[in-house]
């Protein structure tokens, strides 16, 4: 290699340096993040566990309703709603997707790999945007497959006198799509939460707190003025609005989806602000 007369020599690879355009920069970061995502084993085990759990639970619940249908009282039979019953797993599957999102960043912080990432791409917001975009697409794909499979398997267990539904029913298709959207937004919420707390343990505990403890704690409180202006806006209840048919005290699906998206955007904003000022 020739020694240049300038301060720094011209290294061999420099000739092939890609052009400086926002598009080429963005594409490079996406490629890098995709390689990392692809090779993050805990991500795929979490996704697989979430799939297995959802499908299994839907199967179990629908099977037990089918076999015990005659033991249900008339009132319980009248209240039975096949779509709601087969999608009930969504209350819990949200945890898997939240954890999946959080793991994408907390594992990088946990191992210290994040420093290598930021050395290669000092444009930190770009890194986060690439992660969010990939997780959003991947998450929606996984969620749609999971929810549809669980729904179909669950419905296949219901027959005879037990009411059942098919995806041809627009209400069923809407609920499945709403459920998938809920899981995707939860994954993104987990991602940005992970950026805020940087620790897998805290992120997982927080997800359990928000998605399982809080609703149990406050959903059945007397529905006074304060309740009506707070409890329906819990992430889990907004999700409920997206896939459940009985939402008399809750928010309508469209505003629920937008509010949940707003949560994601606010958390993302907080994450970005921290990311820019925080030492890596």
């Amino acid at each position: 290699m020739p020694i240049g007369t300038t301060d720094t020599p011209m290294p061999a690879a420099q000739a092939q340096r890609p052009p400086v355009t926002p598009l080429s920069r963005g594409r490079a970061v996406l490629a890098s993040e995709w390689i990392k995502l692809r090779s993050l084993r805990s991500l795929w085990t979490t996704a697989l566990a979430g799939f297995g759990f959802s499908v299994g639970l839907s199967f179990l619940v629908c099977s037990s309703f089918q076999s015990r249908w005659h033991t249900l009282g008339a009132q319980a039979q009248a209240h039975f709603h096949p779509i709601d019953i087969s999608l009930g797993f969504l209350q819990i599957t949200s945890l898997f997707f939240g954890a999946l999102g959080a793991l994408v960043v907390t594992t990088e912080y946990g191992t210290g790999e994040i420093r290598g990432t930021f050395v290669a791409t000092p444009q930190r917001p770009l890194v986060l945007a690439a992660k969010a975009l990939l997780l959003g697409l991947l998450g929606f794909g996984l969620a749609l497959v999971t929810v549809s499979a669980a729904f179909l398997l669950g419905q296949s267990r219901l027959s005879g006198a037990v009411p059942h539904a098919s995806l041809a029913d627009p209400r069923a298709a809407g609920a499945v799509l709403g459920g998938a959207l809920y899981l995707t937004l939860t994954a993104l919420l987990g991602l940005f939460l992970g950026v805020l707390v940087r620790s897998t343990a805290i992120a997982i505990s927080a997800l359990f707190g928000v998605f399982t403890v809080l609703p149990v704690l406050v959903n059945n409180l007397p529905k006074g003025l304060v309740w009506r202006h707070t409890v329906p806006y819990l992430p889990s209840n907004l999700g409920f609005s997206l896939w459940h048919s009985h939402i008399e005290f809750l928010v309508r699906p469209m505003p629920a989806g937008s509010t949940l998206a707003l949560y994601v955007i606010v958390t993302a904003g907080a994450g970005l602000a921290l990311l820019r000022t925080r030492d890596g």
């Binding site: 890098s32 990392k36 805990s42 191992t111 210290g112 420093r115």
Partner: peptide
Amino acid sequence: LLDARAVHPGRSAYNHLHSLAAANGIP
């Protein structure tokens, strides 16, 4: 080279380097 141990233990050496290269459009 900062902290040599700062790599996700589950990833292969090739994938680790590949992701870094990709981030800068390095062939």
